[in-house]
Design a protein around this nucleic acid. Structure first.
Length: 150
DNA sequence: GCCAACGTTGGC
DNA sequence: GCCAACGTTGGC
């Protein structure tokens, strides 16, 4: 099955959530290329979160605007480096690779309806595009994605 | 299409 | 350094 090679994030790594509008960059696209550069972040808080990422950290891939759901998990495969798409300013990217397409997506609606996720940054800081996620929150979302029949 | 939340800019 | 004006994000 698709999840057979997926490994839960190890205890010495951090977990994150990153947003993308799927018509700009989708999980499909990341899966197609096998590797992606997370560019275009132009917000200091989000940039600082990129800079705090380490190789092996796992990231929930969220589709904003269209879908409004977590669709997959990817892994950070480089430390941060300067954003080559930035014409000015001090901006950063990391590279990621797809790890797992969720068997069942986890919608914003479902997240909002889950008491254990009441404090997730996705809800508390709705405009932030790169944010830390607590391990328990990450595992809860994964559990929801694996549940049979919703 | 609207608007709340929130980040940025610039005048003072 | 304050804050009003403005721009952007992203859910509804």
């Amino acid at each position: 099955m698709a999840t057979s090679h997926y490994k839960l994030p190890s205890d010495d790594t951090n977990t994150w959530l990153m947003k993308s509008e799927p018509d700009a960059y989708s999980f499909d696209e990341l899966e197609k290329t096998g590797r992606g550069m997370w560019d275009g972040v132009r917000n200091y808080a989000a940039r600082n979160n990129l800079r705090a990422m380490r190789r092996g950290d796992q990231v929930l891939f969220y589709h904003s605007n269209i879908g409004m759901e977590v669709v997959g998990i990817c892994e950070v495969i480089t430390e941060h480096y300067p954003d080559p798409t930035a014409e000015s300013g001090d901006w950063s990217v990391v590279d990621v690779k797809p790890l797992l397409r969720l068997p069942q997506t986890v919608t914003l609606k479902a997240i909002k309806a889950t008491p254990e996720l009441a404090n997730i940054a996705l809800i508390k800081q709705s405009r932030l595009s790169v944010m830390p996620v607590q391990r328990e929150e990450f595992l809860k979302i994964l559990e929801m994605a694996l549940m049979v029949n919703g």
